[in-house]
Design a protein around this nucleic acid. Sequence first.
DNA 1: GGTAAGATCAGC
DNA 2: CTGATCTTACCA
Length: 216
Amino acid sequence: METQEGPAGNTWSGTDPSAGPPPAPLPRSFFQRDARVVARALLGKVLVRDDGRSARIVETEAYRGSLDPGSHTYRGPTPRNATMFGPAGHLYVYFTYGMHWCANAVCGDESDGTAVLLRAAAPLTGLEAMRDARRVRRDVDLCNGPAKLCQAFGVDRAFDGADVVAADRGLWFADDGTAPPRRPGNSTRVGLTQGRDHPWRWWVPGDPNVSKGRPS
DNA sequence: GGTAAGATCAGC
DNA sequence: CTGATCTTACCA
């Protein structure tokens, strides 16, 4: 019988004593589904980093490969999107607008090129580290956008390809018992010029940490 | 080799 | 609403 413990090699050091032991990572099968299903299922799950930072996912978007003109993988494999064409349960991190990083959870079957963009989250623990990484007045501004979330968690190029099931880089998703909303908010995606008709954005209704980004 | 656009954000 | 800031992808 094993005691409840985090992924091998990780040292949970959450600053909130009530946070308890490190929650186990979601299994790979969680991600091996249609990205639209995973996008909704991720609402309410917790993004965890082994330095104590954690936040509840409150907004996501699905990107669907060759079926989706708005996806980085729409036109086939390139050096940049290689991770998205790999196995589910890895993190696809890309650089954009000359200064921002954004993170996705790769979904579906290998070579599908599908993923879920993490658009916003509600900070839970490790707020000091997040405030350190981002100079903002209100905590609600720490993770209320895809690039803000990455900055708050210190996610950059070094995390592209990270296995969030094996948690090989100290980053994973956990289920703390919070169920996804019965009826999530839904709209077209934010910031796209192509594929903007697809309603593949979802969020937790009423959560103040949902991004201010407007659908295209 | 040149260039246009980009799954964004902060400040005015 | 605009500027920042630079990588990527695509075309010549």
